[in-house]
Design a protein around this nucleic acid. Structure first.
Length: 485
DNA sequence: CTCCCATTTTC
DNA sequence: AAAATGGGA
C-alpha cells in the first residue's frame, strides 16, 4: 500500500530542471501548479553525461550563473533549488524518497546524451515505483513531428520549413510564476561551488563584462530587440558592427527563455499586413527547430558528416594553422576579428561565423569537427544541434549543402558587410590607423602606408597564412576528388 | 586603356 | 557566393 499523506498536506512534485532554467512558460512547473502541487526544484550536474560533448567552458560559465540566478529567484519564493552531482537516474530517486515526492516532472532533451539520460531515469523510476511525466519545454515542436511525403525526415530546410511553418507556433503557458509554491527549507546535497562548473583557467572571467545571465535579463533582451527583429532585421543582421541581431542565443541554450515566448513577442509586434512567420528572424528560430530535427534523426552528426561521401574528404593536419585560426592570427582581418570577438566575449556575430567557418574548412582545409569543437568550448550559446548543423552547412557536408563552389572570400565579405571597417578595427586595434581601402587586405598596402599606420606585417599583425586565390583553387581541387567516389 | 557596374557562369 | 564577362563611362 502506498503511504498515505495526511489530508491537509499538498502533493509534492520534483521539477527536474535541465535545459529550461526558468520559471515562466515551463510546462513542468505549469503541471505542478495545475495539479495543486508543492514544488521541489532540482538540478543535477553530471559531468560524464555528454561524453565528448559535455558542456564546454563558456557554456559551463553560463550554466553556473544561470543556476545562481534561478536559485536566487526560487529563494525569493521561499524555496531552495536542490543541486546534486552525479547521474540523474541515481540522484533523482534518492531525492524523491528523501523528500516524499509524489511525481517527477521534467522537460525532455533531444540530444543523444539527454535522451539516454531520460531513458535511464524513466527506467529507474519505474522500478522504484516513482511516477514521472515529461514535457516539451525547449522546442516549438517535437523533432519527429514534421515528416516529408514518404514519412522520412527532411534534409533540406526550405521544404521542412514550408511544411512546419503553418503549424509550428505554440502559445506559451499562461500561468503566473508568482503563484508557484515551493517546498520550504530544503537542504541541497551540493553547493553551487561544489558543482565545479567554473573552469580553472581564468579565461571565463571576462565573459561577465558582456553578459547578464538571468531569466529577467532574457526578457529585457526580448524587449530590447523585438522591434529590431520585426522591422529592420533582414538587412541589419548582416552587419557585424551593428547591434542588429537578437543576441538571444545564449538565453535559449540553457532555457532562460523558451522559443514559444520569443515567437509570441515577435508575432505580437509584427505588422498586421505581414504574413505569419515570414519574418526573417522567425526563420532563424525555424533553423533551430530544423537543427534539432536533424540531430534527432541522425544522432551521429556531431562527429560524422551527414553526407557519407565527405568521410573521405582529404582534410589536412596542420596544428599551426589551427592555432592561428583559433586565436585570430590568420592575417585575414575579417576572420581574425571574428575569432577575437569570440574569445573575448563568448559570442560571434552570425555573418562572421559563416566567414570564419568557411575559412577554416575551405582555405585551411582543416576538418569542420575541429571548428565545431572550438566553438563548443568558447561559445556561451553552444548548442549541440545548432553548432553541428551550422558547421556541417559551412563544410558543405550537411543538410542544405551549399554549392561546392561557394567559398567565402574573406576580403569581399569585409568590404560588403563591414563597409567602414569598424568591426575589423574594433577587434584588431593594430589596424586602427590603416586606411579603409586596405583594412581587409593589409598586405596589399604600400609599405609607406603600412609604416604611417603603424602596421608591421608579421610584426604586430600577421601576414596572410594562405594566399586567397591559391587556397580557393586548392579547396576546389579537394572538393573535386569527392566526385570520383 | 582603365575603372565600374550589372549580368552570367561556375558544375 | 564568388569570379568571370562584357558593356558603357
Amino acid at each position: 500500500m502506498i503511504a498515505e499523506s495526511s489530508p491537509s498536506s499538498k502533493k509534492r512534485a520534483i521539477v527536474w530542471f535541465r535545459k529550461d532554467l526558468r520559471l515562466a512558460d515551463h510546462p513542468a512547473l505549469d503541471a505542478a501548479l495545475q495539479g495543486g502541487m508543492e514544488i521541489i526544484p532540482v538540478f543535477i550536474w553530471d559531468e560524464q553525461e555528454g561524453g565528448a560533448w559535455s558542456p564546454g567552458a563558456a557554456s559551463r560559465w553560463w550554466l553556473h550563473h544561470s543556476l545562481a540566478s534561478l536559485g536566487n529567484t526560487i529563494e525569493q519564493k521561499r524555496g531552495n533549488l536542490i543541486l546534486a552531482k552525479g547521474q540523474a537516474a541515481v540522484e533523482l530517486p534518492r531525492i524523491a524518497q528523501a523528500h516524499q515526492a509524489d511525481i517527477i516532472l521534467y522537460g525532455r532533451c533531444y540530444d543523444p546524451a539527454g535522451i539516454a539520460t531520460q531513458e535511464a531515469v524513466e527506467e529507474a523510476c519505474d522500478s522504484s515505483g516513482i511516477s514521472t511525466e515529461s514535457f516539451n519545454s525547449s522546442l516549438l515542436q517535437e523533432p519527429w513531428e514534421t515528416k516529408n511525403g514518404t514519412g522520412k525526415p527532411f534534409q533540406v530546410f526550405t521544404p521542412y520549413w514550408r511544411k512546419s511553418r503553418p503549424i509550428i507556433y505554440r502559445e506559451p503557458a499562461s500561468y503566473d510564476p508568482r503563484k508557484l509554491s515551493f517546498v520550504p527549507n530544503l537542504s541541497s546535497p551540493s553547493t553551487l561551488e561544489e558543482l565545479g562548473l567554473l573552469p580553472e583557467h581564468p579565461w571565463h572571467q571576462k565573459l561577465g563584462n558582456h553578459w547578464e545571465v538571468s531569466e529577467a535579463a532574457a526578457h529585457q533582451q526580448i524587449e530590447r530587440t523585438v522591434e529590431e527583429v520585426t522591422q529592420s532585421y533582414a538587412t541589419r543582421r548582416n552587419h557585424p558592427s551593428v547591434d542588429g541581431t537578437s543576441r538571444l542565443s545564449p538565453y535559449l541554450a540553457w532555457g532562460q527563455v523558451s522559443p514559444r515566448q520569443i515567437c509570441q513577442a515577435v508575432l505580437q509586434a509584427e505588422n498586421e499586413g505581414s504574413h505569419r512567420g515570414e519574418n526573417k528572424f522567425l526563420v532563424e528560430i525555424g533553423w533551430r527547430e530544423f537543427s534539432y530535427h536533424l540531430l534527432y534523426h541522425f544522432p551521429n552528426i556531431p562527429d560524422q558528416p551527414l553526407r557519407p561521401k565527405y568521410a573521405n574528404f582529404p582534410w589536412l593536419d596542420d596544428p599551426d594553422n589551427l592555432k592561428r585560426w583559433q586565436f585570430g592570427k590568420t592575417g585575414y582581418p575579417m576572420v581574425d576579428a571574428g575569432m577575437r570577438q569570440l574569445y573575448e566575449t563568448g559570442w560571434m556575430h552570425n555573418r562572421v561565423r559563416m566567414v570564419v567557418a568557411s575559412f577554416l574548412v575551405k582555405h585551411l582545409l582543416l576538418p569542420w569537427q575541429e571548428g565545431a569543437r572550438w566553438f563548443w568550448d568558447t561559445l556561451v550559446d553552444a548548442d549541440l544541434a545548432s553548432n553541428t548543423q551550422g558547421w556541417q552547412w559551412a563544410a558543405g557536408c550537411g543538410a542544405d549543402a551549399a554549392p561546392y563552389f561557394r567559398i567565402f572570400n574573406p576580403i569581399t565579405q569585409g568590404d560588403k558587410f563591414d563597409a567602414r571597417g569598424e568591426y575589423a578595427r574594433r577587434w584588431i586595434p593594430e589596424l586602427e590607423k590603416l586606411p579603409k581601402k586596405f583594412v581587409f587586405s593589409p598586405w596589399t598596402a604600400p609599405s609607406s602606408v603600412l609604416a604611417e599606420s603603424g602596421v608591421d606585417l608579421d610584426g604586430n599583425y600577421p601576414g596572410p597564412c594562405v594566399d586567397h586565390p591559391e587556397a580557393r583553387a586548392r579547396a576546389l581541387a579537394a572538393l573535386a576528388t569527392l566526385k570520383q567516389i
